[in-house]
Design a protein around this nucleic acid. Structure first.
Lengths: 260, 260
DNA sequence: CGTGATATTGACAGGTCTCAAGACAAGTGG
DNA sequence: CCACTTGTCTTGAGACCTGTCAATATCACG
């Protein structure tokens, strides 16, 4: 029953259980499609350490905590799973042999890693925890069947596919045609909007567990340049960022940068 | 029956019917999924000018020639169609208000514009002819039903989704982490491999209708820089390009550039 | 207090863009 | 046949954005 669960591959030095994040991330099952289609009963705060198995609507899933910066799905892993992020932040990244990587998307609570996992293994994509993450994995065949049988299945699929395509198109534009300042401003605004929908934060202040390396990998810049741009943004009082807490001080100015 | 056919939107000055391309493009229905799932009988060389309607397997479609550089699907068009390229080359591009654009993919004969069209309107994406194109459009609901009913439907879907994700991931890496030379070399090699599968050409020589503007929009560079790089590639005798015919003279060297 | 991860800062180099001018081919209308 | 336009391609000069390298600071943690 556990054959599809390979997250024990050690890619980085383990950052054992007592991660030092200041903030605790709450689950946000409200927008989660696993709950919507009835294959998940929702996150329970009292989950034990280690993985644990549950069955909802005849669909088996396993859930598990991952410490910050720990790999969740290896990029060479071809397992038949559909992973969801229940709490915390994770990233979906493309890895190249040279060690470079590109973050394709950030995953917040209640989000599927990628709708493509419903159909394929997304080979080449790695999923990694940013903050501490609770991740639940379904078996693809069962999940796919449940989604197909659900009356809203097709419209959920359309919505997810459209969302990911839109996001991917925008990232293409970012990398190809927008300045470093614009890319970072857009990332911050985008995450702000998404954090408001989740339990991680609200309004102009929200938890921001990303390292500059994450931002660099997501925007196609170097960490050095990210640092310089973000320092400038703080000097200009567009944002404030301390203790992994992001505050948007001047949304108008940030939006102006983003629109360049 | 024609309400979903809006390609008469004039976006550029019409380049009337007698386009001056040297090469004629042949259809390649062999890999086309519309034929595979039995909703298209295949391309007929004697199609009249103007659009024409056909019914195969109870699925209605309209086909039409588009002159080179003419829009096929407008980027604001929300019509319920699934477009296929039967002959010639087209592009799928993201357009921004400022007029900038990003070519997401090149479409060769026998290819669906994007598998996402099976589920959504791909708003923001424009499809445009590069050479003269014969394009066939299906109605989404009918096409989706036919695909779902086909025994191989699910595996076709998986294959297409995986292919487009893989290609999108590679483009992300291109834009974020590869040099201009590498991006262009990769594009040429990639198109070479695909052209060999279609009727458009074979081996080290194939039809290449792209303008430098297309290459620039696909690689995130400027036309000026594309020109400089490609001129250098010709000086070094890696490629030869004249009369819209591309010849790969030194595949090894090109591959070395691509791998950088 | 040492260690590793992360963040900051400055100097410098280099890749790519912008701007501008011109070449060339094809088509158009006289 | 010629002038004219349009789209495409070419070339050069200079500016600027971003990367590279290196040194240092800061922080969490054992």
């Amino acid at each position: 029953m556990e054959t599809y669960d390979i997250e024990t591959i050690p890619l980085r030095p383990a950052v054992l259980e007592n991660q030092s994040e200041k903030t605790r991330y709450l689950p946000s099952c409200s927008g989660c499609i696993a709950k919507e289609i009835g294959v998940c009963a929702g996150f329970s705060a009292n989950h034990p350490a280690g993985r644990h198995r549950s069955v909802t609507g005849n669909v088996v899933s396993t859930g598990q905590y991952f410490p910050a910066r720990r790999p969740i799905v290896h990029h060479r892993e071809m397992s038949d799973i559909v992973p969801f992020v229940c709490t915390g932040w994770a990233v979906s990244a493309v890895v190249v042999p040279s060690g470079k990587r590109r973050i394709v998307s950030f995953l917040l609570a209640g989000e599927i890693a990628s709708v493509n996992f419903v159909f394929e293994s997304c080979s080449g994509r790695a999923i990694e925890a940013v903050s501490e993450v609770y991740c639940r994995k379904f078996r693809r065949s069962e999940f796919q069947a449940a989604l197909g049988a659900h009356p809203q299945g097709n419209s959920i699929l359309s919505r997810l596919l459209a969302g990911e395509r839109e996001s991917s198109d925008q990232t293409h534009l970012d990398l190809a045609r927008r300045s470093a300042e614009s890319r970072i401003a857009r990332l911050v605004l985008h995450l702000s909007a998404r954090a408001q929908n989740s339990a991680a934060g609200r309004a102009e202040s929200f938890s921001f567990p990303l390292r500059q390396q994450h931002i660099a990998d997501a925007t196609g810049l170097t960490t050095v340049h990210v640092c310089k741009i973000m320092t400038r943004m703080r000097m200009e009082r567009y944002i404030s960022l301390a203790n992994r807490q992001m505050r948007i001080l001047d949304r108008g100015a940030l939006q102006a940068l983003a629109d360049q």
